[in-house]
């Protein structure tokens, strides 16, 4: 379980005068569940890329449990992400030709030998996400099942935080609800901090705290509202 502290974060794209994202301070205690909402172009994805280390941060600091993501090199950010952050993306990024099980263990297998315990945990996670046949080829699953496999993959290495970027956007309503359910339930059971970017109210309602972005700044924060 990791806490998040964002301070003085400013992200700019070349050729744009104003920053696409500018956050003075954002604190998220370990184990919290945060929804980030906002119209498209509001800076949601940039924020996700910054806190997951997919994008290089020039100004400000992003502390995950005390470690500053902004000070790490690209390679170190990759390694940090592999160790601590489970990612769930809008279009799954599963790899056709491999089975559900192979997809879940792929990131670990590409980094090192898969241990017996990890293989066991992958089966358990697939069972918990309701994938009946782990040996089935991924491309033959329904979209809802695919995203559930992606959730199992994100949780395999017991990450301190799960970051989901529009996890339900490409799913129909019932499949979306199932995935939302899983994310909330499993991150609680696994003791992971949860950050979800979504414009799905059904999903954001279920999280403890919601922030809303517009023009790269936080214009609404339910956590601060409660604190105030």
């Amino acid at each position: 379980m990791l806490s998040l502290d964002v301070t003085g974060l400013e992200m700019r794209f070349p050729g744009l005068a104003s920053p696409v994202l500018s956050i003075d301070r954002l604190h998220l205690p370990a184990g919290a569940r945060l929804a980030i909402t906002g119209a498209s172009g509001s800076g949601k994805s940039t924020l996700v890329n910054a806190i997951t280390g997919l994008e290089r941060v020039e100004h400000g600091s992003i502390l995950w449990g005390g470690e500053d993501m902004a000070r790490l090199s690209g390679w170190q950010r990759d390694a940090f992400r592999a160790r601590h952050i489970g990612l769930v993306m809008q279009d799954f990024h599963l790899f056709p030709g491999l089975s559900a099980f192979e997809n879940v263990v792929l990131p670990v297998r590409l980094a090192r030998r898969l241990s017996v315990a990890e293989a066991e945990r992958a089966r358990l996670l697939l069972d918990m996400t309701g994938i009946a046949r782990p040996a089935q080829k991924i491309e033959t699953l329904s979209r809802g099942e695919m995203q559930r496999v992606a959730v199992a993959r994100a949780l395999l290495s017991k990450p301190g935080v799960v970051v989901a970027d529009e996890p339900t956007a490409s799913l129909d309503r019932s499949a979306g609800e199932e995935v939302a359910d899983l994310l909330v339930r499993l991150s609680r059971e696994e003791g992971a901090t949860l950050v979800v970017v979504t414009h799905d109210p059904a999903l954001s309602e279920r999280l403890d705290r919601r922030i809303r972005l517009a023009g790269g700044v936080i214009i609404e924060d339910s956590g601060e509202a409660e604190a105030a």
Binding site: A82, M89, H93, F95, L106, P107, L110, A111, R153, S157
Partner: peptide
């Protein structure tokens, strides 16, 4: 590019991507 980006995002080390 997307596949390679996804592999890295999911935590595959650079050397694996290069080897692949």
């Amino acid at each position: 590019r997307r596949q390679i980006g996804a592999l890295r995002a999911l935590g595959a080390p650079m050397r694996s991507v290069v080897v692949i």
